[in-house]
């Protein structure tokens, strides 16, 4: 059995945005539509002048072991394959958007022209490595089989250096991060804030009038 995962080594990420552009081109995603992205960035300041940190992390799909998006999908369009990658069956998707709200990592978005959800699938159709891994300027994105103890991703995870985001939610995310020393940020809290905002937007949209 293969279980693909990813590690972002933020100690060496130079924030070039190469991963983002490579993803867009490799997956044919329009650069001109806001919100159309399989990889997003969470970037924010922490502290007060002059003691300021700027945090930056990449958010692909976490390819969770127990993905909430699959659970909430009413049509079965979202499913996990035997390599641990969460895929979308475009034929089955009705664009309801439950997954968009349910995912705490914001992995899903609705392609309104096609009326279906789109998300990172580790460049499944590319057949090799994800485009972001190949494009990373500092070669600080690792991709491989988490079940292979000899893989770079396994070594980083088992050493304790690489940690997931929001593990307490119990979904078993398979994307991990190595933080810059002394820079463990409040990312989890920020993610939850974004998640709540997404839910609120949907809630406002469906709120009955009158």
């Amino acid at each position: 059995m293969v279980s693909y995962g990813m590690v972002f080594d933020l100690r060496y990420c130079v924030r070039s945005r190469s991963c983002y552009v490579a993803c867009k081109v490799a997956n044919g995603i329009s650069p001109s539509k806001k919100g159309y992205r399989r990889l997003s960035y969470l970037e924010y300041e922490e502290g007060e002048y002059p003691s300021v940190l700027r945090h930056f992390i990449q958010l692909p799909c976490m390819q969770c072991e127990d993905p909430v998006c699959v659970k909430v999908c009413p049509t079965g369009a979202l499913y996990k394959n035997d390599e641990g990658i969460v895929l979308v069956d475009g034929e089955r998707c009705d664009g309801c958007g439950h997954c968009v709200v349910a995912c705490p990592y914001g992995a899903c978005y609705i392609d309104e022209e096609r009326g279906v959800v789109d998300k990172c699938d580790f460049c499944f159709e590319r057949g090799t490595r994800p485009a972001c891994v190949d494009a990373c300027q500092s070669q600080s994105i690792f991709f491989g089989d988490l079940d292979d103890p000899g893989s770079e991703v396994s070594k980083l995870v088992s050493s304790g250096k690489a940690k997931p985001l929001l593990p307490e939610l119990g979904m078993g995310p398979k994307v991990f991060y190595v933080w810059q020393e002394g820079r463990l940020p409040s990312v989890g809290g920020r993610l939850v804030d974004s998640w709540v905002e997404r839910w609120k937007r949907v809630h406002r949209a469906i709120k009955p009038s009158g």
Binding site: R15, R17, Y20, V21, K24, P31, S32, K34, G35, Y36, R37, S40, Y41, L42, E43, Y44, E45, R54, F56
Partner: peptide, 9 residues
């Protein structure tokens, strides 16, 4: 390169 989502913060 002018994609808004690329800019982050």
């Amino acid at each position: 390169l002018m994609d808004e989502d690329l800019e982050g913060d």
